[in-house]
């Protein structure tokens, strides 16, 4: 059941990202080019996603457990620390440089294997650097 939920959720996510143009790095870069030739498409994507997820959270609050598991597994951390802000700032730099974030990069692996592949391999290397070096401190 969980595997099926994972597969279906991933499939819909991948189709949505591709339909919305988010697997096109120049379009994402256009959204971040606020002081240049701004492309507001990404705002519609996030708006659409939140339009569904807002009510989903309201439903979640009334559920004792999810449909396919015995308990919810949700992040409960509240504190704003340097890791969160520094990590998000770093992520934004890479996002602006390449026009790609993790979801679109993975969703583009089948349609643009070379470019998306280079990005994803480097991203996995970055995640390993984090778990080996930074996470131990």
């Amino acid at each position: 059941m969980k595997n099926l939920i994972g597969l279906v959720s991933g499939l819909i996510f991948g189709i949505g990202l591709t339909l919305s143009g988010m697997t096109d790095p120049s379009r994402v870069r256009g959204f971040l080019d606020l002081f240049g030739d701004w492309d507001p498409t990404l705002a519609f994507v996030m708006g659409g996603a939140i339009l569904v997820m807002g009510p989903a959270w309201l439903i979640q609050r009334r559920m004792a457990q999810p449909l396919g598991d015995s308990a919810f597994h949700l992040p409960g951390t509240q504190n704003l620390d340097g890791k969160l802000i520094g990590g998000a700032a770093l992520f934004g730099i890479g996002w602006g440089l390449g026009g790609l974030c993790p979801g679109p990069a993975v969703a583009a692996l089948g349609t643009a294997p070379l470019a998306a592949g280079v990005f994803v391999i480097a991203m996995l290397a970055g995640m390993m650097v984090h778990s080996w070096a930074i996470d131990r401190m």
Partner: peptide, 15 residues
């Protein structure tokens, strides 16, 4: 692209 990916990998885990 590789540099961007590396930074995104570290940043998303840290954040």
């Amino acid at each position: 692209l590789a540099a961007a990916g590396l930074i995104v990998g570290i940043g998303t885990r840290l954040g």
